[in-house]
Structure formats: C-alpha cells, structure tokens
Design a protein around this nucleic acid. Structure first.
Lengths: 250, 250
DNA sequence: CGTACTTAGAGTCACGGTGACACGAAGGGG
DNA sequence: CCCCTTCGTGTCACCGTGACTCTAAGTACG
C-alpha cells in the first residue's frame, strides 16, 4: 500500500489580511475627505512587491516563519514590520499550499486575518510601497491574494453575526450608533437603529458606562463598553450566536 | 526596522480527523451489537504510533506533504494509506505550528477533517494499529491531538447548523428519520420528528425520489435525495443557514 | 383474519424574536 | 425661540419554532 513519495521542500510563509474602518496614511486616491455613511467601506493595507515573482504587484503583508516563533507571532511580527500596524484582533484564516501558487519554489502560506481600530492605523508606515485599498475594489494582486482577501471578507461577514468581533473595530467605549455603523459597513446594508438597539441590549454583550458623548450637534448618546473585554478576541468554534437576523446580508 | 530572523526549518505534515456514524472493522471494545438510538455517537479512526515521539500512543492518521501534491491531496492520500478510508467530505480545519508541539524537530501540521458514509468504512484496513474510538470518549493521544479533535468536533457541530454536510454521512437516498438521526447524533440531543420534518422540507434542501423504503416493520418512509448533490461538499464561508434552531445544542 | 403496535407524516396552537413604524427626549444652530 | 437632527422608547403584526395531537400505513401476533 505504501508508495514512495518525494517529500516537499516547501518554504513556510505567513501573511495577513488586515481590515480597518478607515484607511491609514496613504491610499489610492486623494486624501480622505469626510466620508458619508453610505460611502463607508472596509480598508486593507497592501505592500508593493519589490522583487520577483510578482514584482510591482500589490500583495498581502507577510514574511517567512521564524525558527522560534509561533505562527500567530510570525503574523504579528511581519505585519508590523511591513505596515507598522498592531492589530487588536488576529485569527488564523486558512492555509494555502497549491503546488503551483508560486512559480519557482514551493511556498505554503498560513494566512491570518486581523482587525484594527482607527487609532491603531495612525502608527502606519508612510511609504510609497504601502497603500490602503477599498476591500471591495482591489486591483489585481500578486499570486492568489485576490482569492485570499475574498475568503477573508466572507469570514469576517459571517463571524460578525455570531461573535463580538465588531468591538475590535472600535475604541474602549463607543456609542450604539458607532457599533451599528460597523455592522452596516461590514454587512453592506442599513440597519434599523431602534431594532438594532433592542437586539444588542438584549444580548447582554454591552454595559453602559454611565457617561455620554458630548459635543455632538444633537442629543448626546450614551457610551457603552463590551461586557467581557476579552470576548472580542476569542477565537474558535465555540461561540453562541447573538442574533440570527444579524447574520443575513445580501 | 528589519531585524535578522533565523528562519524555521520546519517539516510540513498533514493530518485528518475522520468522523463516521459507525465504527469500522475494529474498535476499542467488543464487536458492535445493535446500537440503540440513544447510544449513537461519532466514531474516529486513530493509528498507533510505531516510533518516537509518542510511540505507543494513538494519533490522527497523517503523513508528510509530497512535493507535487496539494494539501488536500496529501490529506486524502495519507488517510487512505493509513486507514483505508476514502472520505466523501474533506475540508481544511486549522494549521497547528507551535514551536514546541513536537520534541525533536519543528513540525507544522495542516489538519483536515472528513466525513464518511457507513459503507465507506467497510474498506477500512484491518490492523491492530488502527482502531475506531468514540469521539466523545478518547484516550490520551499523542502530541496535541486531543485538542485538535475537540476543535474539529466543535466545527462539525457548528457547521451542521448552516450547511448540508449532514448529507455526507448518508447514502445517495435516505429517509428523514435517518437524516434526523445524524443531527441527533452530532448535536447530542433528541429532535421532534414532526418539527424536524417541517423545517427540513421548508428549507428546500431535499427532493423526494418518489420511492419508499420497504421491508421495514412499520409504515414505509419516503426516500429523499439532496436537492443539489454537490452541495454537501461545498466549503467556505458563503453559506446560507438552513434554520437557526438546528444550530443550538447543549 | 383481525387487533395491537410501531413509525410515518400532517395538522394545530401558543410563545417569542424580528421588521416596520410611530413618537417623545435632548441637544445645537439658525 | 423654533426647527432641525439624532437618541431612545414603545407598539403592532408577522412568522419560525416548540410542544402537542391525530391520522395513515405497514408488520407481528393471537
């Protein structure tokens, strides 16, 4: 039954798809003007490849796995080195290892995906070879990276419905309108503010801080905090869905 | 910003967690007597390690990645070589790569999970070093394989609720009682037959074959077939949940 | 040969979560 | 000071689900 198999001399790479609500310092078009809620979309930092294969193309930030580091550690290190971003949420996505996905040598890529808060993108590296793109409007990327981003987007949209990862896009405290805006951006459809409030309050995932946000031109909204601060970072399959209707997106 | 990193000299392994409704030829206790519905559980084939590290311990079937094969191909090949099973459903689960998970050298394992139909386990290898275990009653396995199985079980239970993977446990045609039994086994709780029928029929995932199963001591049940035969094998995150109440399990 | 027994399958009802919508509350800007 | 906006509460109808009842259609057994 046992045949002789020539073992693969594969190199192990780690890449990361990083999602943010706002682009970092540089993105494709002119500087960011005030974004209308309808314009909102997800932003992804990409790095330009400086050597073959795929020279000149945009690619996911990544690098080679170090001898003493974990896979997740390598993901955090390489995306910090290339983009200057430290994510609040980091989870393994999928491992891509088709024999022909890189021309010269066999490369197996363990891909992670990350969520960052707006303030965290401010530490982003300013470099013509790092640019932020609209996640739904990407150019043709190097290797199979377009498919990887599409897969990561699907995972993000699915996971939003049965976890608290939306908190990872926001600061320590936030208003319900800000949380709803995260859902609307990711799900790409408007949500009824009243129904959204009712559902989220019933889920018990948030607690009121007792404070309100002042300085708004309207009625000051209450500020909330995640009930379990560690919740946003919990991975794995053992999660309780918060509300079925937050899982449906067109 | 760039430090010098010693690259990992890691070997790439592929392992698979195989789930079946019935044990194959050999399992831990005495031969399988007639199982009562309440006794039903999921079965997993494991192989005994014949060398260090972990010699004597039971472990997931697997092997090294071949030079010319895909990751999924390597999973299919190695589990066929070690257990003689060809799965109907095969999907990547997670990649484990902690630096210390194998004592001597660095091993990164891409783990898959599989579902097989009862008839497919009949080709299983008869070997004292291959044994079928109750998925919820495993001994202490080699390496981190206990955690891997637990993770796979969680994924199976979750995915049952928003996909048609239950079909992968069954033959081409089946009765609603058989399909319900799959759900009851995986979810570990009884389901009301009438409500289950209503929900599944409304989902449109099944079509009647027009035939019935004869030879039963009772009223002959209708036979059904998956509406989309390829559906059972569809992976990825882009699935529509069939019914929220089939996602809840204690 | 008919009655009992078992499972298949259809039907009914009440509860609760959700979508759609109305309305009062609370602030700033003209 | 009125009007605009958003915040936040409340109401109602619909529908999926859980619990349950009832009929259909076979076999087993006396």
């Amino acid at each position: 039954m046992s045949r002789t198999i020539e073992l693969a001399e594969a190199r192990l790479a780690v890449s990361t798809v990083i999602f943010a609500r706002e682009p970092g310092v540089a993105h494709g078009e002119q500087p960011v003007q005030a974004l209308q809620p309808a314009d909102r979309s997800l932003w992804i930092p990409l790095v330009r490849r400086l050597r073959e294969p795929g020279e000149g193309r945009w690619a996911l930030p990544g690098g080679w796995l170090g001898a003493a580091e974990s896979l997740e550690g390598a993901a955090a290190r390489t995306l910090d080195e290339t983009t200057g971003v430290t994510p609040r949420y980091l989870e393994q996505l999928y491992t891509f290892g088709a024999p022909d996905r890189s021309p010269d040598e066999r490369v197996v890529s363990v891909v992670y995906w990350a969520l960052v808060r707006p303030e965290e993108t401010s530490g982003a590296i300013e470099d013509p070879n790092v640019r932020w793109f609209d996640a739904d409007d990407l150019p043709e990327l190097a290797f199979d990276h377009n498919e990887i981003v599409a897969y990561a987007l699907g995972r993000l949209r699915t996971k939003l419905g049965y976890s608290q990862i939306a908190h990872a896009f926001l600061d320590e405290t936030f208003t319900l309108a800000e949380l709803r805006e995260v859902y609307e951006t990711v799900m790409r459809r408007p949500l009824d503010p009243a129904n959204f409030r009712r559902t989220v309050e019933a889920s018990g995932a948030l607690v009121e801080t007792g404070e309100v946000r002042t300085g708004t031109p309207h009625r000051p909204p209450k500020l909330y905090r995640p009930a379990d601060p560690a919740e946003a970072g919990i991975q794995g399959a053992f999660r309780i869905p918060i509300a079925p209707h937050l899982r449906r997106h067109p």
